[in-house]
Amino acid sequence: MSGADTALLDVRGVSRSFWTGGLLSRRRIDAVKDVSFTLTDARPEIFTIIGESGSGKSTLARMILNGMTPTGGSIAFGGEDLTTIRKTRDRMRFMSRVQPIFQNPFESFNPLSKVDRYLTMTARNFTDARSQAETDAASDRALRKVGLSLAEVKDRFPHELSGGQLQRIAIARALIPGPRLIVADEPVSMVDASLRVAIVNLFKDLRDELKVSIIYITHDLATAYYISDRIIIMQKGEVVESGDARAVLDNPQHPYSILLKNSVLSPDVPDDDEPQTIERDRAARSY
């Protein structure tokens, strides 16, 4: 790993705990425990965070997006500690360089406003564009990067577009400020299997052509294998395994990683005389 001065994102020993329960039954939940990793500026990559629901993936993502402060450790973006960002101007500058993409495209758009409004507002807030013509041009440029055009989406409401299209618009929106890092929290889990490939291919293009680093949070090991460079596997807030994505997924070492890999349903059908995977599992269960 190169020195701190070239680090795009430096996550150091980050923890986050929550307190629940009443006065007498307070209980601490450690959502994220001592997570460290670094993304370098020189080489954009797709960095995948894998884990089951409740493993702390989304909490980690929110801390990287500066939507939540860690209770331990520090996160620095471009050498600047996130806790030092206090002024609105600094916050806007940070937001223009780190952009989120959320899980459910049907929920991330307001059903009552037209989708191009999101593009226009982002262009107005984060770029120099002021006039309608300028924001339209910025929106169109971003949409063309994801294989759409402004003419296709202008004056359309979210219900008129498919989930795949909406997710691509969400990605286009995230591209308008020209970010260095995109944090995508389960971007394909609500998208049809047939459209998933199109979206993850788009992430590859963003990395290779626009040099944007992507933190890809998912529980889908197959797409993770398909696109990621490096990977960390989280269980109950802790990183249990990390390294080169292909190496880790080809040959997982930690029991939890092995369980995850074995739980993935293979899209191959068994031979005629063999029972299906689910059936074999059932026979193997001992009760």
Binding site: G164, A193, V197, L221, Y225, Y226, D250, K261, P267
Partner: peptide, 21 residues
């Protein structure tokens, strides 16, 4: 298309999504 486009672990060959809506 549905069957061929499925990514799987151990195979990183590029796959194409379906065009259009």
């Amino acid at each position: 298309h549905l069957i061929r486009s499925l990514p799987r672990i151990g195979d990183a060959e590029p796959r194409k999504g379906l065009e259009g809506t």
